[in-house]
Design a protein around this nucleic acid. Structure first.
Lengths: 135, 135
DNA sequence: GTTCCTGCAAAAGCTTTGCAGAAGA
DNA sequence: TCTTCTGCAAAGCTTTTGCAGGAAC
């Protein structure tokens, strides 16, 4: 069994998430493909090796994993959800031409860590423009 | 004629946008109600004084005004578009409980103004959490 | 007069819901 | 065994599209 699957099982157990093959596949795909895929991309890829897989299951899995804090969803400008299994602090760059989503580093940047009266949970930095390939 | 409508007419002329009553209403509503309304909110409000108004026209107007740079759309976490007629640099705080969207100041904060290889056009800072009323 | 806009209806696309059978613990 | 998940079909919502009539310029 590949090491990564053991890691996944550990994390699911830590978070008290029920282990199912579908959830493992989805999470593994996100960990190994750091491309901020759409729901449909995940579905299309995993459907190949698991023809009975349903899109509803992808959505259910997203709910479970993001409630547990293992993944997060970012909304692309088209209003379509994109998935990210890396929850460390980084920015997202959206290419307006090809739709590519790329991480970028936010080390050395500063942000308000508090706004008076508000309880801040997450902060996200999004940039749009044109990626190197499209220029 | 109120001063604000003259300002709107000037801006439309500057941007070479055709003047229609519907567009003026939408833009005026956004300037006077800094609440980051959804498309439906704008539609419902303006429909009262203009019963024949269509949602398609709201969408067409959003296209025209945002292409001209007069407004911008921000995607709430639910995937619904919200409108902002203030294009100066500020952050957006989304309350997870009531859905309120509030501006917050980004003075004194620092961001990457360039990412190598990428042509950056816009940058947006989004925070989520709980607003004062919901705490 | 020409161009562009409005508004209706229908379609498209992503996501959610209800539910019966199946699988995890 | 009990709880929870999967997957199908259908519904829900926001947004887009096609088009005829109408308004802006």
């Amino acid at each position: 069994m590949p090491k990564s699957v053991n890691t996944i099982i550990e994390r699911f157990n830590e978070k008290n998430i029920r282990l199912t093959p579908q959830r493992i596949c989805v999470y593994q795909f996100l960990l190994e493909n750091r491309i901020h895929p759409t729901v449909d991309t995940v579905y299309t890829h995993l459907k190949k090796s698991n023809p009975s897989l349903s899109k509803t299951t992808i959505y259910n899995t997203i709910d479970a994993l993001s409630s547990a804090g293992l993944i997060r969803t970012i909304i692309a400008n088209e209003g379509e959800a994109r998935l990210d299994a890396y929850t460390d602090f980084h920015g997202h760059f959206f290419c307006e031409k090809c739709g590519l989503v790329t991480d970028f580093c936010l080390d050395g940047c500063s942000f308000p860590d508090q706004i008076d009266g508000f309880e801040m949970k997450t902060i996200e930095v999004r940039a749009t423009g044109t990626c190197p390939n499209c220029r």
